[in-house]
Amino acid sequence: MSKKEKKTKGIGKENYKTSLQRLQLELVKLQRHLIRNDLQILIIFEGRDAAGKDGVIKRITEHLSPRETRVVALGKPSDRELRSWYFERYVAHLPSSQEMVLMNRSWYNRAGVERVMGYCSETEYENFMKSVVPFEQMLLGSGMQIYKYYLDISKDEQKRRLRDRRVDPLKQWKISPIDEVAIEHWDDYSKARDAMFRRTHTEISPWYVVKADDKKTARLNIIGHLMSLVDCPDKDKHAEQPDAEIVFPFDEIYLHNNIIAP
């Protein structure tokens, strides 16, 4: 059995807090570097419902300046947006100079939720899949840095988390009609995800898969992985190196050996 197939070991509360604080200090260094050099960073988080996107974003932004950090989580498109160029509503939220934007779901909604739930036509889906890579290349060519993470969880773990949402009054704001059918459409979401990976994972804009059944381990590794990618002269290269068995670039073989949840 591959090591990536093994369940991640939970991390103790104190070790987690210490590691998280150390990584959050690195994020502050990154933000200073971003502001000083007029950079633009876009971080996209995708994944199944209850995969842990909210929690990761909260830990990344917790100690960053809100003036230069934005979280984008768009709701249902308006009638006007439905009649507009698909990417238009997202373009308005892209990072400007000296800014970091974290998207809790993104234009890849069309490749996932919209595809599975029938919210877009086959033509709209194909137009998106053909245009998203050139669109990202254009953004990258303008100097924007883009990092794409897909949080991968098992079916059993999704069931448990969705069940927790229904009974925890502090989590019930997360409940949506999509949640109610997430498990029912598990296989459909898997097929849509696989097609998205195959057609939108590129050398200059790769997808990074995160094994996220253990939330704390996933959070630490995502932040560590992000810091390993960015060019920040002040960063501590020895701080919490990411585990390559937790965060790794997509590869077709992972769809056939259960490293990515089938």
Rank of each mutant, 00 (worst) to 15 (best):
Y108G: 04
R67Y: 12
V72K: 02
V167L: 08
T69N: 08
G75F: 01
F248G: 03
G224D: 07
M1T: 11
E26S: 10
N109I: 00
I60R: 01
E245W: 05
L162K: 03
L220C: 08
P206K: 03
V209C: 07
I60M: 15
N257V: 00
Q158G: 04
R80S: 14
S205G: 12
Y90A: 02
E122Q: 14
D251M: 05
I183E: 12
I41W: 08
N221K: 06
L82Y: 07
G52N: 09
D164Y: 07
S142T: 14
E26L: 10
Y189H: 12
E99V: 06
E184H: 10
T200G: 01
P95V: 01
D236H: 02
K215F: 03
H238R: 15
L64N: 04
A212Q: 04
E124L: 00
G141P: 04
N15H: 11
L74E: 05
C120V: 13
Y208V: 08
K159H: 10
N37T: 11
S106V: 00
G52P: 12
L82M: 15
L220Q: 05
M196K: 07
R22P: 03
I183V: 14
D38W: 07
R89W: 06
D79C: 01
F250T: 08
S96R: 13
E99A: 07
H256R: 08
L64Y: 04
K29W: 00
V56C: 13
V72S: 09
V167E: 11
L102E: 11
R48L: 10
Q241H: 10
N104F: 01
K29T: 03
V210F: 06
D251E: 13
G55T: 04
L34W: 03
V210P: 07
K215S: 09
V210T: 03
N258H: 12
N127R: 09
V133Q: 00
S205T: 07
F135P: 00
K6W: 07
V56T: 11
A111V: 01
F128K: 00
V113K: 02
H225E: 06
L23W: 01
R166F: 04
V133A: 01
A212C: 08
A192K: 00
P177Y: 05
N15T: 05
E157F: 05
V210Y: 06
K216P: 07
R163I: 07
Y119T: 05
E68D: 14
